[in-house]
Nucleic acid binder design. Structure first.
Lengths: 114, 114
DNA sequence: TTGTTACTTAATTTTATGCTTAACCAAACT
DNA sequence: AGTTTGGTTAAGCATAAAATTAAGTAACAA
């Protein structure tokens, strides 16, 4: 089943937890079942599942259940959305810096010529 | 003063709040004082300052005080770090998909020739 | 059909967040 | 000197988040 409207609040919230980032990291190497995802963590299964729910609610991960195993995978479009948000703000700032630099260069030596 | 070791937990945590994202958005258009940043929000000044502290602790924003006004600006390198983390996982996943696609294409028609 | 595997649900506890008000401090006006 | 402006500190409170244990369900395997 496809998921939620991707929402930046939930996405960044999901990414703020090291366990959840480790899960995304694992999933970036390919799909995995809930118990495969749980294996590396010293944590109860329900806790892992709650993290997974946070990831799914955010849209970053999707899953489907076949028989009794739930298989999870990354939702690259959602990752991309968060990425873009950051990129837009950063480049806006950097463009401003560039213009400021050009201005300073252009007006250099007007008040105090070398 | 330059800030914290940028830490993904704190960065994504900082980005998870809409007020804080709005502040970054504002700062992407240029530096601002604390009260300028506070103006758009229906919220006490101390609350705004707490958000600002979260942003500074994460490394996403830095500030310096001159006289009695504190001026804040974006720290583009930190934004870039979060961006990269997302990008690396997403491209890893997508490369995997590509290889899978090629494989399927290469083996197409071996079992059921059109 | 009995047991095991792979989750799922529910209840509870602990800790962290986001916000408020009140009081305070120091720079800049008048 | 007295007042306003810009920000800081501290205490308290309500809600949300992260984890636990205990109990339950459905698929598959022997």
């Amino acid at each position: 089943m496809l998921n939620q409207t991707p929402n930046l609040d939930q996405m960044f919230q999901a990414l703020a937890d090291p366990t959840r980032r480790a899960m995304i990291d694992r999933l970036s190497r390919g799909p995995a079942s809930v118990s495969e995802l749980a294996k590396p963590f010293d944590m109860s299964l329900p806790a892992v599942v709650q993290h997974l729910q946070a990831l799914e609610a955010s849209g970053l991960v999707s899953s489907q259940k076949v028989g009794r195993v739930r298989t999870c995978q990354i939702e690259p479009a959602a990752l991309s959305l968060a990425e873009q948000w950051l990129n837009e703000r950063r480049t806006l700032w950097m463009q401003r810096l560039d213009r400021l630099g050009e201005y300073l260069e252009a007006t250099a030596g007007e008040e105090e010529p070398k």
